[in-house]
Nucleic acid binder design. Structure first.
Lengths: 343, 343
DNA sequence: TTCTCTACTGTGAACGCTCACAGAAGCATG
DNA sequence: CATGCTTCTGTGAGCGTTCACAGTAGAGAA
């Protein structure tokens, strides 16, 4: 290692070099690269050997130039970046998508549309065809970026059911309503009857669905519904804390709380402790998400696990299918109750 | 909006269209696009108008094909993905880098090198020139991917001082040692004399430096050093909890603990509470990172803020400079003590 | 034999851009 | 008037692929 050639970065071998090495034409090498149809076994083998020998890697720019595909996809986060970036689920989703795409040898471009300037830049970038499709995280309604992309015909898969976008948009979501139902049924099965709820933001489908599930089970079970048992939050820890305080004030006899996110549930636990209520003896608390916050909480949270790994895999699968010409699709995945110490 | 042309995705305008529209040649348009030197104001104006009118966006593939640059950079996370993905700092860093790059109109490709297969794929992708440079998050020593990239002459900027890589690698880091010094000085200033430490992983520079800062201040202050006051962790919450238990067993008279991460500090707080020690009355606790965990903790953590926004900006700045031909550089940024309730 | 069909291979063109070069025009200088 | 310099512009070549097409060889059928 005396000769420092670091920083040299000589031009990598081209398809031409491989063809010469293998004693075939560019066309044959290209065919081998793209599936290997109509290539004799002999040529196939020679080309593969030549690729290995030369260390050839296809130049994606050249390929994209002619195919019109970019062979890359965008992961787009619009709107409330703070919320998502603090949400551990976001990490799991991002990681899952990256890995699922990596398996297809497709790079993921991270796009954050915060400022108006960024929105414009990103929209232009995407509509110019620099990505083949977009994984969208934007549970808010009326997202202008998403709307614009949809109109431009960019293949789009949202995480969670998008509000306000037409049916042309695919989405993958956990079954929020069913998860909520499971949790509330679980609380009822413990003998609790004054079951409160701290909802998520009601301009998001998740927030709406979880509340709907709560109401459904109560009415099914014939439990008297009580508006004082319903308070709303925005998924943040602080809003959970505030929500629990309101709940305790409005309905002091509350004996269980279904909280629409683990982060909020942490806040609820803190408020309950301050109020001198024991968990789960006096008040049972159920969360939603099964985020790290759930196990970190004291007591550890009973919660609803969203299948994030499956969600990310499905998002990628649906997006690639749609890029391949399939129609938009909606995928709803089942959730799972995880029982811990708080119920 | 009755005619649904969604899904049409007609070919976008090319530089040719712009040239025709503006009544100039391709070359002139290209010059306007790339800085506008040697272009008459008249032509300049005509081209800009034509660009706006046609909605032209440069085809990056075509450009890259000829320039050899990709005008995109990779954000590479190697090794212990779990740790980083649970670490809120990682989010802040990722977001900061993405935004800093967006300001230069450079997309960020997220690359996760988990499995051996992924490592190979990523290395091949990068060395093939599909990104111009790499932002590296890998505090572990002897990272084979990083080493390979360095040898291939790929511009590289690490977050945190990399162990085992030569001086050819740039890095940006917070001043861990100085931050640790500040915290321990703060604890001493409160009159504490039996100051324990829960270190980070000692195969990372951060872990080593923070411990070094602790030792320095104690010896400066003439406080008797005691090996029983030193226990090691791995930045995880659980290791903090276990560390505090060991600490209490080895040195029951401990009256302050410097914990090398907020996440671990949460664990320390839990262990202290269980042991019946009040914080900060009996034991003062200082964290490191100023992550969301710090404010979420009960009591809220006094901690050392790392300037993550500046770190990400500097990483991008240094990387772009290096791609532009500058020599590798090391940047150390100052930290800040944030006092809350735990001291 | 001759024709058709299949399996395979090579060739040129094109994708949209940048870059080097040639050349024009304007102006000052010898 | 020639010469040089500066500022500006257009042109052709070429980046590394894929794709359509033409063409070859061999097998089987007529």
């Amino acid at each position: 290692m005396t000769m420092s050639n670091a920083g040299a970065r000589r031009r990598p071998p081209t398809i031409h070099d491989v063809a010469r090495e293998a004693g075939v034409s560019r066309g044959t090498v290209s065919r081998v690269l793209n599936g290997g149809h109509y290539v004799s076994p002999t040529a196939q083998e020679a080309v593969n050997a030549a690729i290995k020998k030369t260390g050839y890697v296809v130049n994606r720019h050249a390929r994209s130039l002619i195919t019109g595909r970019s062979d890359s996809i965008g992961f787009l986060l619009t709107e409330p970046q703070e919320r998502f970036f603090e949400d551990p689920n976001f990490n799991v989703l991002l990681r899952g998508c990256t890995q699922a795409l990596a398996a297809h040898d497709i790079p993921l471009l991270l796009m954050l549309a915060g400022t108006e300037d960024e929105r414009r830049r990103i929209t232009r970038y995407i509509t110019a065809g620099h990505v083949d499709g977009v994984l969208l995280v934007s549970s808010h309604s009326g997202d202008p970026v998403a709307e614009e992309l949809r109109e431009a015909g960019v293949p789009l898969v949202a995480c969670g059911k998008p509000i306000g976008l037409g049916s042309k948009v695919s989405y993958v979501a956990a079954d929020d309503r069913d998860g909520a139902r499971d949790m509330v049924r679980h609380l009822l099965s413990l003998g609790r009857r004054r079951v409160g709820v701290v909802t998520g933001p009601l301009d998001t489908p998740g927030g709406v669905e979880r509340l709907a599930g709560y109401k459904e089970v109560l009415s099914e079970a014939g439990v008297e519904s009580d508006e004082r048992l319903i308070v709303s939050g925005d998924y943040s820890r602080a809003s959970g804390e505030a929500g629990a305080e309101r709940l305790l004030a409005q309905a002091p006899d509350v004996d269980a709380v279904f909280v629409a996110s683990d982060l909020m549930a942490q806040g609820v636990l803190a408020a309950l402790r301050r109020a001198g209520r024991r968990v789960p003896e006096d008040v049972a608390v159920g969360g939603f998400d099964d985020s790290p916050a759930a196990t970190a909480a004291n007591p550890a949270l009973t919660t609803i696990r969203q299948p994030w790994d499956r969600i990310s895999n499905e998002m990628v699968r649906v997006l690639l299918a749609q890029i391949g010409g399939d129609d938009p699709a909606a995928v709803i995945l089942p959730t799972e109750l995880v029982r811990r110490e708080s119920t």
